[in-house]
Simulated assay, not measured.
Amino acid sequence: MWDVKKLYSFSIDDELERLPDTVPELAGIEKHIPSLKTLIHPKIHWVDMKIKHKGQNYISMEDIGGNSFTIDSSYVAKGLASCENTTLMAVTIGEEITVNSNINYGKGQFWEGIIADRFGSYAVEVLIERFHKYLKRNFLSKGLCSTLRFSPGYGDWHLQDQRRILDILDTKSHITVNSFSILEPTKSITALIGWSRTHQASNYPVGTKATGLCDGKTNCQDCNTWACRSGSKG
């Protein structure tokens, strides 16, 4: 079995209260936040691993029990080139806020549906960012610095790896994946973080049409990593 850690009582209430101050499209919803917060139920699964092997187009990791996980991706391999440890994670805020949004849409209460959906989208980002900061503090005490987060579907890391990640992290009670490799509940995120003895730049690996880190065939409209072979981003 993988050495998976689970956390189901991770509070992000303070950050959620501040969202209207930092997100323009949520301005004016302050009176709705108390009820929206009751629909947020954070769940976090993660496993820490050591990097065993690195290549130009892959990276192989292993947990404390000797279980191995290999990612075939030049994008991820380059992003974690100076790292010696990694953390693989999956987080979710649950399905209640999406259910609430759909109910409001069904009643013709479109503004309420939109607000619930957008609040949920920002809430799951707040959750993973807050947990990332929590991990940073812990690893800094070991002299390790964090990379940015890498997720399937960006660069040349195939979205189909979502299923492998969820199997490793034993999330079936809280997060699943459909036949299109989309996470359910939709307000969920999987990610990989690298840990290095040296300070890490706060930018993603850069690619070009000739030497890029992506096949240029998928996820173009949603990719903001500039790891592109298609030539559409430089």
Rank of each mutant, 00 (worst) to 15 (best):
E25S: 15
T211G: 11
K54Q: 14
F150G: 03
S35Y: 12
E17Q: 08
G216Y: 02
T198M: 01
I44F: 11
M49T: 13
V47M: 04
S181E: 08
Q162G: 01
M61L: 08
R197M: 07
R197H: 08
I115D: 00
G28I: 11
T86F: 02
K43E: 11
G153A: 02
L183H: 03
N203V: 01
I59Q: 03
R118F: 13
A227S: 09
C83S: 01
L80Y: 00
I114Q: 07
A81V: 12
M49W: 04
T198N: 09
D21I: 03
E129Q: 14
T176Y: 01
A210F: 05
L88C: 03
V206R: 07
L169G: 07
T86S: 13
D14F: 14
L148P: 02
K107G: 08
E62T: 07
I97Q: 05
T87Q: 09
G108D: 07
N100T: 15
T211K: 15
A201S: 00
I29P: 00
G94V: 08
L192T: 03
A123D: 10
I33M: 00
G106P: 07
K31M: 07
N178A: 02
K31L: 02
D161H: 10
D215H: 15
N178R: 00
D161K: 04
S188I: 06
C228D: 14
